[in-house]
């Protein structure tokens, strides 16, 4: 797990405070990890409410049941992967383009766009459900994955916002120089800004993946066919009207949690590389 910052800073002298630092970090780690560990353990228990923290005997029964009880389970996992992958790509590209324009181009209506973006984030989404449903219905998109778009517009807006904030934090000299060299707007974006935007891309991708992967309330409303469901929607089949099968839900949640975690682990390495590539730290 030893992925250190690529450009070593001068080592900090060993002082007693360092032990305290590790104690604080360890305590917070425990605090963060406990619920996750708890759900892993529950998924291995025969009964959700069996006493004690550790499952005894531990059983993989619920994982086996997930595969057999619902023939669509693997399909939902696959659907989630496809939807999340496509969403991440689209979200990253569109937020980079939009964020760049907002951060760097002084254009007419910039302030208005900014305000509209903020405004759209501020209205409770529940009042938009009915109008959006009607629009999708007009478009013939109900019960297709296109109908998931409204559920991701919020992520797109905050992603655009994040990219623009990030770029504003970068010095402009390189771009000014490129402009003087006669590079077009798009050329500047492509050659100068994009290589520097690694960390922002990573952040937008991670948040976008999470948003798409965990999207729940909206897909339930707009998807009708179980074969189109994403995993969080499908998992609710185990949550009955009166009776909930917690062990199955916990086992299923593992499929829900682990891919996001993997994406994060992967991107967070890239994250640091991105900064090294940016060459901003000497």
């Amino acid at each position: 797990m030893g992925c250190e910052a690529p450009i070593p800073r001068p080592p900090i002298p060993r002082d007693p405070g360092r032990w305290l630092l590790y104690v604080v970090l360890a305590a917070f780690t425990l605090f963060s990890v406990f619920p996750f560990v708890f759900s892993v353990l529950t998924s291995l228990k025969g009964q959700a409410f069996a006493p004690g923290l550790l499952p005894h005997p531990a059983t993989l029964e619920h994982y086996r049941e997930l595969m057999t009880a619902s023939p669509l389970f693997l399909r939902w996992v696959l659907n989630s992967l496809v939807v999340a992958t496509v969403s991440v790509i689209v979200l990253a590209v569109l937020s980079l383009l939009g964020g760049y324009a907002l951060a760097r181009i002084p254009f007419l209506g910039r302030q208005a766009v900014f305000i509209l973006m903020l405004a759209s984030l501020m209205i409770p989404g529940q009042v938009l459900w009915i109008p959006n449903y009607a629009t999708l219905s007009e478009l013939g998109w109900i019960n297709t994955w296109w109908a998931l778009i409204p559920g991701l517009v919020g992520s797109l807006t905050s992603g655009t916002f994040l990219v623009s904030q990030f770029l504003k934090g970068l010095p402009e000299e390189l771009e000014e120089a490129a402009k003087l060299d006669g590079l077009s707007r798009f050329g500047t974006f492509w050659r100068i800004v994009l290589p520097l935007a690694g960390p922002a891309i990573a952040s937008v991708s991670i948040t976008g993946f999470m948003a798409s992967w965990n999207m729940f309330a909206w897909p339930v409303i707009v998807l009708d066919s179980p074969s189109l469901f994403t995993l969080p929607v499908g998992l609710n089949f185990f949550k009955g009207l009166h009776v909930t099968r917690w062990t199955l839900i916990m086992a299923g949640s593992m499929f829900n949690t682990i891919p996001v975690l993997l994406v994060f682990i992967f991107f967070q390495r890239y994250f640091i590389k991105g900064i090294a590539m940016a060459g901003m730290k000497e």
Partner: peptide, 24 residues
């Protein structure tokens, strides 16, 4: 017939469908 079981929020979903003339 296509069977479309709704795993949660059935009432909200039914309402959205009925209001948009898209009910099953």
């Amino acid at each position: 017939v296509g069977y479309e079981p709704v795993p949660s929020q059935y009432d909200s979903k039914l309402l959205a469908m009925l209001a948009s003339h898209a009910a099953p």
